[in-house]
Design a protein around this nucleic acid. Structure first.
Length: 408
RNA sequence: CGGGGCAUGGUGUAACGGCUAACAUGCUCGCUUUGGGAGCGAGUGAUUCUCGGUUCGAAUCCGAGUGCCCCGACCA
């Protein structure tokens, strides 16, 4: 993309109303726009990151977990929540149809997906079923905070699995952990992210969270380094040790962290209220066992930033960077050559063709944080080369122009 | 929801109860400049969050409201 065609602007100063690093950087770089507390627009560069994260998630959902993507509504009838007893949870946004019928804005989709699946699930031959979506959730948080880490409207991937028995659910649940690990590794926070034993909320006694260590987090976890597992502070008193190797609480590493994913064995918590059953091989009706598996997409983007940035700006992992290269030309001759390079590799390059000082271009390249900054000047052209600088290590080297694409 | 803080051009800040609300940045025009937010000049841009009160006079003091941030509680 030619940067001159990008309508968003960068700024030197962060708005004073944002304190969270992720929000300051994303707003300064023009990736997002704040509409109100906890509600943000995603602008071209920010949306590119979101789309890349989504596609990484989709790949794991489709391939590893064999799930089918669907898209459910944000408007839900309140009656469904009365069936499950969740009509009074305090994060529910309520609204009404013109006819007076009570609705809620979806904060999760169990109340929609179960009746939906009921129309398609009759026999043991239909099981298992795995469906997921990437959709906006609405939660009337008393306090939105930390930029895009806790919003009132936010994008989330939610997967629901339907099983003939607990054993099958168990197996799939374990498989989901692997898929989740792959996702967090692929977006660049694998090292900082730990499977964490946590409270099950209204769903079940326990659940597993995926917690990414960062000072910006709102949870506290106790990490067992050797097992790469953690225990959430909320249940550490109940089980004050590593669930795997038994290392005691005192020897676990205590850290602040942000929950980027969460998986639950719902079992019959939602299938029973809707009478979701199937007929088994012997003609008997049996209950359906469910699991649900969430990942906050916007939050994940924020978490990546909290982990990867420096005083000059953002540092995007190649897997989710809006572009791989940020191309800057110095001098008229170099501009011509840069345009040629850009034409061949449009998809991978953000080309700064703006008529501004080179200092500003460098500063913006640091702020926007593409993994590789490519500079072409008369000096580098003497060797038919460009200078490549890695955003994260600041390491620089000259590379032949025709080797640029294959080089890194 | 409890506690604390903040609210002034687009953005970041300044201004004793008293003159036309200042500075930086941004933006526009002209000239110059091109390896780290460059320079000179000329412009542009504000109902000082809202409502009410005190006062001869309010950005400034008082009250209420709203918005935003932080701590806590809450968090499918």
């Amino acid at each position: 993309m030619r940067q001159s065609k990008l309508f968003t602007k960068t700024t030197k100063d962060a708005p004073k109303e944002e304190e969270a690093k992720n929000a300051q950087l994303l707003i300064r770089a023009g990736f997002i726009n704040k509409e109100m507390a906890g509600v943000y627009s995603y602008l071209p560069l920010g949306l590119k990151v979101v789309r890349k994260i989504e596609n990484i998630i989709r790949k794991e959902m489709n391939e590893t977990l064999e799930a089918s993507e669907i898209f459910m509504p944000a408007l839900h009838p309140l009656e469904n929540y009365e069936k499950t007893g969740r009509e009074n949870i305090d994060v529910l946004f309520r609204t009404k149809l013109a006819t007076g019928r009570s609705l809620v804005l979806g904060q999760s989709h169990e109340e929609v997906v179960v009746p939906l699946i009921k129309n398609h699930l009759f026999s043991y031959r239909d099981l298992p079923i795995y469906v997921y979506q990437i959709q906006n959730k609405f939660r009337n948080e008393l306090r939105a905070k930390s930029g895009i880490l806790r919003g009132r409207e936010f994008s989330m991937k939610d997967l629901y699995s339907f099983h003939s028995d607990e054993g099958d659910l168990e197996e799939y649940y374990e498989k989901s952990k692997k898929a989740y690990k792959n996702i967090f590794k692929e977006v660049g926070i694998g090292e900082e992210t730990f499977i964490t034993f946590a409270d099950g909320g209204t769903f079940s006694k326990y659940s597993h969270e995926f917690q990414t260590v960062t000072g910006a987090g709102e949870d506290i976890i106790y990490i067992c380094e050797s097992c790469r597992l953690a225990v959430n502070d909320e249940i550490i008193d109940e089980s004050p040790k590593c669930p795997e190797c038994g290392t005691k609480k005192e020897d676990l590493r205590k850290e602040k962290s942000i929950e980027v994913g969460n998986i639950f064995k719902l079992k019959r918590r939602f299938s029973d209220p809707f009478d979701l059953r199937y007929t088994d091989e012997n003609g008997h009706e049996k209950p359906v066992h469910m699991g649900c598996y969430g990942i906050g997409v916007g939050r994940l983007m924020g978490a990546v930033l909290e982990v990867n940035s420096d005083e000059n700006g953002m540092i995007w992992p190649e897997s989710i960077a809006p572009f791989k290269f940020h191309l800057i030309a110095i001098g008229e001759k170099a501009e011509k050559k840069a345009a040629e390079i850009y034409d061949k590799m449009e998809e991978d390059i953000l080309y700064d063709d703006r008529n501004v000082g080179v200092g500003e271009k460098f500063a913006d390249a640091d702020l926007i944080g593409m993994p590789y900054r490519v500079v072409i000047s008369e000096k580098t052209m003497e060797n038919d080369s460009v200078e490549i600088r890695k955003r994260w290590s600041k390491e620089e080297k000259l590379v032949k122009i025709d080797k640029l694409q294959s080089h890194v």
